[in-house]
C-alpha cells in the first residue's frame, strides 16, 4: 500500500468515500434545481470552512492516538475572549488576536502536558477541561453575546478577496499546510509512528511525549483561529458558539477514514469527510428534508463510517497475522 502519496485510482479502491461523495452530489443535482451551481458550492464551502479548519490538526491528534474534546469550548472561549478584549477593553484587533492565539497555544500545552504527566487519557483530560473552558467563556461574556464589533472585524469571517470568501482562503491554506506536514515532513512521520506503536517509537528514539503535546497544541491553536473567524462571522462573541464543532469535527475526521485507535489517516481523507458532511447537510435541506431529520441521517452516516473502518481493520489484521 502506497502510504504517503496516494494515487487517485488507489484512493478509489481504498476509500469508497470519494465514490459516495460523487454519487450523493449527483443525486442532489437531479433532485434539486438549486444544488448544482457555483453560488451553492461556494455557499457549502463557506458553511464548512470555519469548522473544517480544526479537522486538520484533529486528524493529527487522532492519528497520534489521542483525542481532543475541548475544541468546541475553545472556539467559544476565544470568541468570548476577543469580544471582551475588543469591545469591553477597547483593544485593537491585532494585539487582541495575538493574545487569543497565545491563549490557544497555552490551552493545548496544558491539555497535552496534563495528559502525559498525570497519565490520564486525553479523552478524559479534554472532557474535563472543556467544561472549565466553557466556564471561563461564560465568565467573560456573563452569558450574553458580546456585540458591537465594527465592519473591519467582520472582514475575517464575512469578507471576500476577489470572489473568494476569506474563511475559504483560511481553509485552503490550512489544508495545504496540513497535507504537506503529514505527507512530507519528519514531524508527520513521527505522528504516524507514535499513533501506530508508541512503544516501538520510543525505542526508536522518537520523543513521544513531545510529539503528543505538539499535536494537541496545534489543535488548540487552530481552534483559536477558528474561534476568531466564527466571532467575526457572527459579529458577536458567544461563549457556546463552538459547541456543535466538537462532534462535527470528530465526525468529519472519522468519515474521512482516520482510525480512532491511531496510526492511520490522511488530510485528504479528512477533507473529503468535511465535504461529505457539508454536501449532505446542504443537499438534504435543498431537497426539502426536515432539518431535524438531517441530524438523524448525519448520525447514521458517522456510525456507518466507523463500522466500515473497523471492518477494514479486521480484514487487515487478519491478513497480517
Amino acid at each position: 500500500m502506497n502510504f504517503n502519496r496516494q494515487t487517485l485510482p488507489r484512493f478509489l479502491v481504498n476509500n469508497g468515500l470519494f465514490v459516495a461523495l460523487i454519487l450523493m452530489a449527483g443525486y442532489f443535482s437531479l433532485a434539486s434545481p438549486y444544488f448544482f451551481n457555483f453560488d451553492n458550492f461556494r455557499n457549502i464551502l463557506v458553511q464548512i470552512s470555519i469548522m473544517s479548519l480544526i479537522a486538520v490538526p484533529m486528524t493529527m491528534v487522532i492519528v497520534s492516538g489521542q483525542i481532543d474534546l475541548s475544541i468546541g469550548a475553545v472556539v467559544g472561549l476565544i470568541g468570548a475572549l476577543i469580544g471582551a478584549l475588543i469591545i469591553k477593553a477597547s483593544w485593537t484587533f491585532w494585539p487582541a488576536a495575538l493574545l487569543c492565539l497565545v491563549a490557544g497555544v497555552l490551552i493545548g500545552l496544558f491539555n497535552g502536558y496534563v495528559s502525559i504527566k498525570l497519565k490520564i487519557p486525553s479523552f478524559i483530560v479534554t472532557l474535563a477541561t472543556a467544561t472549565s473552558f466553557g466556564g471561563v467563556g461564560l465568565l467573560l461574556t456573563q452569558g450574553y453575546p458580546i456585540t458591537g464589533f465594527d465592519d473591519s472585524f467582520a472582514f475575517w469571517g464575512q469578507g471576500f478577496v476577489g470572489h473568494v470568501p476569506v474563511p475559504v482562503i483560511f481553509m485552503v491554506a490550512v489544508y495545504a499546510a496540513g497535507w504537506w506536514v503529514m505527507a512530507n515532513t519528519a514531524f508527520g512521520r513521527r505522528v504516524y509512528a507514535v499513533g501506530g506503536n508508541e512503544e516501538a517509537s520510543r525505542l526508536s528514539g522518537i520523543q513521544v511525549n513531545r510529539v503528543k503535546i505538539a499535536v494537541m497544541t496545534l489543535n488548540s491553536l487552530v481552534s483559536s483561529v477558528s474561534g476568531i473567524l466564527l466571532a467575526s462571522r457572527m459579529t458577536a462573541g458567544i461563549s457556546n458558539a463552538g459547541d456543535p464543532y466538537m462532534l462535527d469535527v470528530i465526525a468529519a475526521v472519522i468519515i474521512g477514514g482516520t482510525n480512532l485507535a491511531g496510526g492511520s489517516g490522511t488530510i485528504l481523507g479528512t477533507f473529503l469527510g468535511v465535504l461529505f458532511m457539508g454536501i449532505l447537510r446542504n443537499g438534504l435541506v435543498l431537497v426539502g428534508v426536515d432539518s431535524f431529520v438531517t441530524y438523524i441521517v448525519q448520525g447514521l452516516v458517522v456510525l456507518f463510517a466507523v463500522a466500515l473502518n473497523t471492518f477494514k481493520d479486521i480484514a487487515k489484521s487478519g491478513r497480517a497475522s
Binding site: 502510504f3 512530507n184 519528519a186 514531524f187 512521520r189 509512528a193 516501538a200 525505542l203 522518537i206
Partner: peptide
C-alpha cells in the same frame, strides 16, 4: 510490540531512528 510500527511501510520503519538524518530542513528526502 516494541520493534516495529506494523501499520507503516518497511521504508518508514527503516528510517524511524534516523528521521533527522534523511530530512533536509523539515522535509523527509523521499
Amino acid at each position: 510490540r516494541q520493534g516495529l510500527v506494523l501499520g507503516l511501510p518497511i521504508r518508514n520503519n527503516l528510517v524511524l531512528a534516523a528521521l533527522d538524518a534523511v530530512s533536509r530542513f523539515l522535509r523527509v528526502d523521499a
